[in-house]
């Protein structure tokens, strides 16, 4: 029992194996639609690769196993998210849980790789967050599609991405307005004023004792509330 909890990703991959078992069993019992035979096969492959993985393997073999594990999970996830038939059943949800736990297992494996040299040292801090982010986006996509959440409430990430790519020109003008004209100039003004202020405050101990408490109080002002006042003073542009 202790081997399950002491191995990195031990209980996660056990959970994944159980979920895959449920998904395949429900699939064999003749529920049509999802998960399809391809997805079931990929999930079984992922479980086999996850249990085949050891910290003690040679690094080339470990990389190959991890890549295979990742690909099996990825395409299973792809099939689950994008080829839904409507009316998803218990087998489908078991497969979703399996993919989630599989992603977790993968993150644990990656986080446990200690030897960090060369390019891997630079890439490693990015891999685990990326897998986590992709998994969260995928769960969002799959769940929103499977239980048919109204688009008004929560659209799927693919729809958001589609709209993003279609309206790049208007978003670009908005970005210029917000970032270049607003953020950059505000940042420059704010930093410049703050540095000058700090120089003066640091020069005179009297000001330091007087201004810092007042500054703390003013910082507590809900800045959002000053927006209507400033708009009234300076106009919108």
């Amino acid at each position: 029992m202790s081997a399950v909890f002491n191995t990195a990703g031990g209980w996660q991959r056990l959970g994944m194996a159980l979920a895959v078992l449920v998904a395949v069993a429900l699939g064999v019992m003749g529920q049509g639609g999802q998960p399809s035979a391809v997805v079931q096969a990929l999930l079984v492959a992922a479980v086999v690769l996850a249990f085949g993985y050891r910290q003690s393997h040679k690094s080339a073999l470990r990389v190959a196993l991890l890549l295979g594990f990742w690909n099996a999970l990825f395409f299973a996830a792809w099939g689950l998210a994008l080829h839904q038939t409507g009316g998803e059943s218990a087998g489908f949800w078991a497969a979703v849980i399996a993919v989630w736990l599989g992603g977790w297992t993968l993150v644990t494996f990656v986080a446990e790789i200690r030897s960090a040299r060369g390019w891997w040292a630079r890439v490693k801090p990015l891999v685990a967050p990326l897998i986590f982010g992709v998994t969260v986006l995928w769960v969002w996509e799959t769940v929103v599609k499977a239980i048919e959440v109204p688009r008004v409430i929560l659209p799927a990430p693919t729809e958001i991405g589609l709209r993003l790519s279609q309206s790049t020109d208007i978003l670009w003008t908005d970005l210029v307005q917000t970032f270049v004209r607003g953020t950059l100039s505000g940042f420059a003004i704010g930093c410049g004023a703050a540095i000058l202020f700090a120089l003066v405050v640091d020069r005179y101990a009297f000001l330091r004792r007087g201004l810092l408490p007042v500054g703390n109080f003013l910082a507590a002002l809900p800045i959002i509330g000053t927006a209507p006042i400033f708009v009234m003073w300076f106009g919108f542009d």
């Binding site: 990656v110 986080a111 967050p129």
Partner: peptide, 11 residues
């Protein structure tokens, strides 16, 4: 949890 440290903190 090392996995959470690696994956959740940036997000």
């Amino acid at each position: 949890n090392r996995a959470m440290d690696a994956s959740v903190m940036p997000w």
